[in-house]
């Protein structure tokens, strides 16, 4: 009887708790997703957008992978404004090149707004990110005395106007990054939108004609986004590939070991085997002595 009462009590407790637990689960808030949008103008030819999805997990911002996102130009309400779709990679990044299909929208105004919208997932609600930029372009040129000149122009109404006071990096492409042209990391554009730097890197390895790729770039500017432009200049040095293939080295193929090793090894082998052969001859002598 006592046992029966105990089960009854347990049943009541479970029935009472289950709805509460379910409600608590429903009430648990999904973590917030933050979408950070960036604009890139590469060589004044291609334009692309990049979004990075982040969320605070265990008190730290972490990159969120596998988030489906759609990019729009102007507003997200009109499907014609869709630039493209993407899914964030393990670094939380998704990229889209602005295609020719949105050319009309792109040309309609000198100031553009880009919107990124994430599709709701089990973990995250739908989230929106926005970026407003002013169209701008960088120009790069060289002058005698290994000088790099660059100019920043922004589109004001329908005119490309020089912009002052923007930080520009002048450098050279090197090992997957940008090496500054000299010890100055950045230059601020003057009233004519221009910057100038003396190229002080000597004997940098170039291609087989000694060409280097010079670059001018604006990075993460609040108004103009990321702009970069590059040009080729014969300021490097050609280093022919020094093949060790047919040389005598410790790592070479058979028959191409270093001479010192061959002399040493063969001297030891010949020395020891000469002794062995001598001893075998002595054995033969012993046999002959016994037979005589």
């Amino acid at each position: 009887m006592k046992k029966y009462k105990l089960f009854q009590l347990l049943f009541v407790v479970i029935i009472g708790l289950v709805p509460n637990l379910l409600m608590a689960q429903e009430a648990a808030e999904k973590p917030t997703l933050a979408l950070s949008l960036k604009y890139f103008n590469d060589n004044n030819k291609t334009h692309h957008l990049e979004v990075q999805a982040k969320s605070k997990i265990d008190g730290k911002f972490q990159m969120i992978a596998n988030v489906p996102v759609q990019f729009y130009i102007g507003t997200e309400t009109d499907k014609a404004n869709l630039i493209g779709k993407g899914v964030t990679n393990p670094k939380g990044i998704a990229t889209v090149i602005i295609p020719a299909t949105v050319k009309t929208q792109w040309l309609s105004t000198p100031n553009q707004t880009f919107i990124v919208v994430s599709t709701p997932t089990k973990m995250y609600e739908e989230t929106k990110g926005e970026l407003a930029i002013t169209k701008a372009k960088l120009q790069i040129d060289t002058a005698e005395g290994r000088i790099i000149n660059a100019k920043l122009l922004a589109l004001v109404d329908t005119t490309w106007t020089p912009i002052a006071g923007v930080d520009v990096i002048l450098g050279v492409k090197r090992l997957g990054g940008i090496l500054n042209a000299n010890e100055t990391p950045t230059y601020s554009t003057d009233s004519s939108g221009a910057v100038m730097a003396e190229f002080k890197r000597d004997s940098l390895p170039g291609d087989n004609k000694g060409n280097l790729i010079l670059t001018a770039s604006v990075i993460d500017n609040d108004v103009y986004g990321n702009l970069s432009v590059e040009m080729v200049a014969p300021w490097g040095k050609y280093y022919p590939f020094d093949s060790k293939f047919d040389e005598r080295t410790l790592f070479a193929r058979r028959g191409h070991s270093p001479l010192w090793l061959e002399i040493l090894a063969y001297a030891i082998i010949v020395g020891v085997w000469a002794i062995i052969i001598h001893l075998l001859l002595q054995l033969r002598k012993t046999i002959k002595l016994g037979v005589e």
Partner: peptide, 13 residues
């Protein structure tokens, strides 16, 4: 069988 305990043989060995 060639071993005859000869002094020369001992000397060589």
């Amino acid at each position: 069988s060639f071993w005859k305990d000869k002094p020369e043989q001992f000397k060589i060995t």
